[in-house]
Simulated scan of single mutants.
Amino acid sequence: MRRLFGIILTPIHYIAFGLLLVIFQPIQWFCYRFLGYRAHKYSVDILNCGLTCTYYLLGNRVSWTNNQNLPLDRPMIFVANHQSMYDIPPIIWRLSKYHAKFISKIELTKGIPSISYNLKVGGGANIDRKDQRQSITELMKLGARMKENNWSTVIFPEGTRAKDGNMKFFRAAGIATILKKCPDALLVPIAVENSWKMVRYGSFPLDTFEHLKFTVLDPIDPKSSATIEEAVQKSEDEIRNFLGQPLSEPRDKNQESRG
């Protein structure tokens, strides 16, 4: 039955989602070109609030839980499990006051209204996965901007989406690179639930009447761990424990590089 509703409601969702992207392309351009960073950021926040609201056109709902007293005067690296592209708009919207920037594939900087423009000018890192040197350089530049502007970032350390909701292990390399330039950043795990279910049938139809949940967990100071790898694994295990998934086995750098 829910799949039948998906066939009916998915086109409505896509039309609304696409219209928002098209409408906000010139708005973003105007804000960035003539009003500066803060106006552009505000336009992106409103856009992602609107994109999140389109989930409700499918009968889905979104809840965000943050009981942490997170600092506003310290950069943070938000570390989340990744289930689908529908993770992203709620995270951008709800983390707006922390100026959270995304790490994205460079391919996404072309051809997508609003999204590509924001990736180009929004201050995040656009990495070429085929070019390790470029990726490291981009991450280090992001770390420097975080330190200079007191920005934060969002990273999906699995490296790809967990299409069935079962987490893959977290890679620490990207986080370690950022911390070289922004050593005071705090790691903040975010547990994402049920986003994968929206696309369990693929891009059409989308699933309906799901409850997407985002929960901010206890922050971790990397300096309290013996290594960055250990701090990242603590973040991973916090999320796994919250989601009721098996805890990961301890890994060393060689295991990570092979993974």
Rank of each mutant, 00 (worst) to 15 (best):
K168F: 13
V121L: 06
A80K: 00
D87M: 07
I91H: 06
A100D: 04
E138W: 00
D128F: 07
A173Y: 10
T177K: 15
G159E: 08
A173N: 10
A162D: 10
A100H: 01
A162E: 13
G123V: 01
P157R: 02
E148Y: 07
K130D: 08
K163G: 05
T177G: 00
R171W: 05
F169N: 09
K163T: 15
Y98F: 15
L108W: 08
S84Y: 06
R171V: 09
K130Y: 10
V154E: 02
F170N: 09
A144W: 00
K130C: 05
S116T: 09
M140A: 04
I136Y: 10
A162H: 03
W93N: 12
Q134H: 14
G165V: 14
S135I: 08
G143C: 02
G124D: 04
T177E: 14
R171F: 09
K141D: 14
I127V: 15
I136F: 10
V121S: 03
A176D: 13
T177V: 09
N150D: 10
A80W: 05
R171E: 12
D131W: 12
K147H: 13
A176I: 10
K101Y: 03
W93G: 03
A176R: 13
R94P: 04
N149A: 04
A172F: 10
G143N: 07
A80N: 07
A144S: 12
A176T: 15
I115F: 14
K141H: 12
G122L: 01
R161Y: 12
Q134E: 09
G165H: 03
K181P: 01
H99W: 09
K120R: 15
K97R: 15
G165F: 07
P89W: 02
L119H: 08
V121C: 10
M167C: 08
S84D: 04
I136A: 12
K120C: 12
T137P: 00
I106K: 11
R171L: 14
A176S: 12
H82I: 15
A176E: 15
K180H: 10
S104L: 11
I136T: 13
E107G: 06
K105N: 08
E107D: 15
